[in-house]
């Protein structure tokens, strides 16, 4: 029951975020979306992901987006086309995009029919390496939380790559913004 309520909230917030013309409101709505998403992760027993979603998605991303917004305009720009022509192209565009979205959605729903049930122990994802992580990770890495064991030890290269991506993002921001100020 609560899962359906959370899903319902997510859909409402997503629609509100894309239909909002005021960008500051859209950012706040996205923040609320991330917070509800964090609750969904907790419901799925993925506390590590929930923690990250709450800290990064609801916290820092909101602050950074507002900081970015302070350097641009608060409202979305409306197109400079004349009203009647705009109306006409809008209807054609919206019919076309409605068809595309419906077809894509139907294909995705068709794809979910073949998927295993949620939490099914015989699902392919649970048969590959999950057992080894659950049973052996403490003996092999000395770490109780096997999410951390996977991130830091079994998938250490991936985590090193992630850290480098974050570092590269920092360097990118420094190169783009700091040089401009010094000129």
């Amino acid at each position: 029951m609560i899962d359906f309520m959370l899903l319902f909230f997510l859909v409402i917030l997503a629609i509100a975020a894309i239909s909002m013309k005021d960008l500051l409101s859209a950012i706040i709505i996205l923040s609320a979306y991330s917070l509800i998403m964090a609750v969904v992760w907790v419901r799925l027993n993925a506390v590590d992901v929930a923690f990250t979603e709450a800290a990064v998605g609801a916290g820092i991303t909101t602050v950074l987006l507002i900081a970015a917004l302070s350097r641009t305009k608060r409202r979305e720009r409306t197109s400079p086309q004349p009203a009647i022509q705009k109306q006409k192209s809008m209807t054609r565009n919206s019919i076309l995009s409605f068809i595309v979205v419906m077809v894509t959605g139907a294909v995705l729903v068709y794809g979910t029919i073949d998927m295993p049930d949620f939490g099914d122990p015989d699902a392919p994802a649970n048969l590959h390496v999950a057992d080894r992580y659950i049973e052996k990770s403490y003996e092999e890495t000395g770490i109780v939380n096997f999410v951390t064991a996977v991130l830091a030890s079994y998938r250490g290269y991936d985590t090193l790559g992630e850290v480098m991506v974050i570092f590269a993002a920092g360097i990118g921001v420094v190169l783009l913004l700091r040089r401009k100020r010094e000129q």
Binding site: V47, D48, A50, F51, T52, A55, V56, G59, I60, I143, V144, N145, V147, T148, L151, A152, E162
Partner: peptide, 14 residues
């Protein structure tokens, strides 16, 4: 991060 949820990413963000 080793015994509960969390770790370097989350701690750094906080």
């Amino acid at each position: 991060g080793e015994i509960g949820p969390g770790g370097g990413f989350q701690g750094g963000v906080i």
